[in-house]
């Protein structure tokens, strides 16, 4: 029986390398994106919910999913969700990134 994967996140049973039992401290930006998501999803704002974040992460596709780690995927998915929900637009995000890069 061959069952299609339900997305790039559907890893159970795959072949993969050894597990490295070490863990590093999270960086600030990783904690900030975690906090940001929780604010957007809180009872006051309700701009998005966890299942939408998961779906947006899965929609990144096999290649993007595989090339980025956990909070990188969150960040990329939140960008797409915020654009889809018209909270931010793509052009203003790109403009801001260019400005940030120039100013450093």
């Amino acid at each position: 029986m061959s069952i299609a994967k339900i997305g790039p996140h559907d890893l159970g049973g795959d072949d993969a390398g050894k597990v490295s039992p070490l863990s590093r401290d999270l960086q600030w930006w990783e904690k900030r994106i975690d906090a940001l998501y929780r604010l957007l999803a809180d009872d006051r704002r309700m701009i998005l919910q966890v299942d939408e974040l998961r779906a947006a992460i899965e929609a990144l596709g096999d290649d993007v999913y595989a090339r980025h780690d956990y909070y990188e995927r969150w960040t990329l998915a939140l960008r797409n969700l915020l654009i889809a929900k018209q909270v931010l637009d793509e052009a203003e995000i790109e403009t801001r990134i260019s400005q940030l890069k120039q100013n450093r």
């Binding site: 994106i33 940001l36 957007l40 960040t75 990329l76 801001r96």
Partner: peptide, 12 residues
Amino acid sequence: VQYLEIALRELL
């Protein structure tokens, strides 16, 4: 991605 995090946060 770190630039993106800053941009999203600042804009919001």
